[in-house]
C-alpha cells in the first residue's frame, strides 16, 4: 500500500454464523486518520460480534474473514494486544478496584517512561478534562459520565490507530448522553484517532463521517 493509503481499510468482509451456516457480506470500511464510521442496525443482527472479531477476540458462534489493514499492516493473524485497536464497551469501562490513576497508567506501559513522567502525563491529561481532582478516586466514586470520559481517555492514551465503540453511551441518561457523545467525537477528532461506532440509536451517529448500513439480506 502507498504512503497515502488510508489509516483503516477493511474490505471483502464476510461474517459467517457457524451454527446456521449463513453468511453476511459487509460493506468495505475505509477511513483516513481521525475519520469515523457509524454502523446502525437492529439488536441481535451481529454488530457487536463483528466489532469483537475486529478486535481479535475469538467469538464462538461467528467467524469474520476478509482483508483487514490498520496503518498498512494486515492484522488478521495478530493477537489483540498487537492490533493497535482500542475498545470502549457500554458498561464497566474501567477496572473497578483500581484508582483513576492506575486505570490510566495501564494504558501507558508501552511508552517506556519513568513513573514520575507517567504521573505528570496522567495529571495533565486529567486537568485537560477538568478532572484533576479525581485522580485517586475509584471508578465507583465517579458519575456515569465521568466514568465514560475516563474510559475513553484510557483507551486513547494507549495511542491506538482505531477505537471501536460498542454502544458506548447506553448507560447514560439522555441529557448526559448528548454531552458525552459530543465530547467523545470532538476528542477523537482532535487526537486524530479513527473510530467505528455501533449503536441502535440514530442520534449517536450524528457526527460520524461515514454511515455504514448493516445489510439486511443474507448471502451464502
Amino acid at each position: 500500500m502507498s504512503s497515502e493509503s488510508p489509516e483503516i481499510c477493511f474490505r471483502e468482509q464476510l461474517l459467517h454464523w457457524q451454527e446456521s451456516g449463513t453468511t453476511l457480506a459487509l460493506p468495505d470500511i475505509i477511513l483516513a486518520k481521525g475519520q469515523s464510521a457509524g454502523v446502525m442496525g437492529p439488536s441481535g443482527c451481529g454488530k457487536s460480534s463483528w466489532l469483537r472479531c475486529l478486535l481479535g477476540e475469538a467469538v464462538g458462534h461467528v467467524k469474520l474473514t476478509g482483508e483487514f489493514y490498520v496503518r498498512d499492516r494486515e492484522i488478521s493473524k495478530l493477537a489483540i494486544e498487537d492490533r493497535n485497536i482500542g475498545i470502549l464497551l457500554q458498561d464497566n469501562p474501567l477496572f473497578p478496584h483500581y484508582s483513576v490513576r492506575k486505570n490510566l497508567a495501564f494504558a501507558l506501559q508501552k511508552k517506556n517512561v519513568s513513573r514520575a513522567e507517567q504521573n505528570q502525563m496522567i495529571a495533565s491529561q486529567l486537568a485537560l478534562l477538568g478532572m484533576a481532582d479525581f485522580i485517586d478516586r475509584l471508578p465507583g466514586q465517579l458519575s456515569g459520565g465521568q466514568r465514560a470520559r475516563i474510559g475513553l481517555l484510557r483507551t486513547v492514551l494507549a495511542e491506538p490507530a482505531l477505537v471501536l465503540l460498542d454502544e458506548p453511551f447506553n448507560a447514560l441518561d439522555s441529557q448526559r448522553r448528548q454531552q458525552v457523545r459530543d465530547w467523545t467525537f470532538a476528542f477523537l477528532k482532535q487526537r486524530g484517532i479513527s473510530s467505528i461506532i455501533v449503536s441502535h440509536q440514530a442520534d449517536d451517529l450524528t457526527y460520524v463521517d461515514q454511515h455504514v448500513s448493516w445489510p439486511e439480506g443474507v448471502s451464502e
Binding site: I80, E81, I87, F95, F106
Partner: peptide
C-alpha cells in the same frame, strides 16, 4: 473476561492482564 479483553485492547498480553487486573 471483560477485564482481560480491556487489558489486551490496551496492549497487555492476557497472562499479564490476569496478574495485573
Amino acid at each position: 473476561r471483560q477485564w482481560l479483553l480491556q487489558g489486551q485492547a490496551l496492549g497487555t498480553a492476557p497472562d499479564r492482564s490476569w496478574w495485573l487486573v
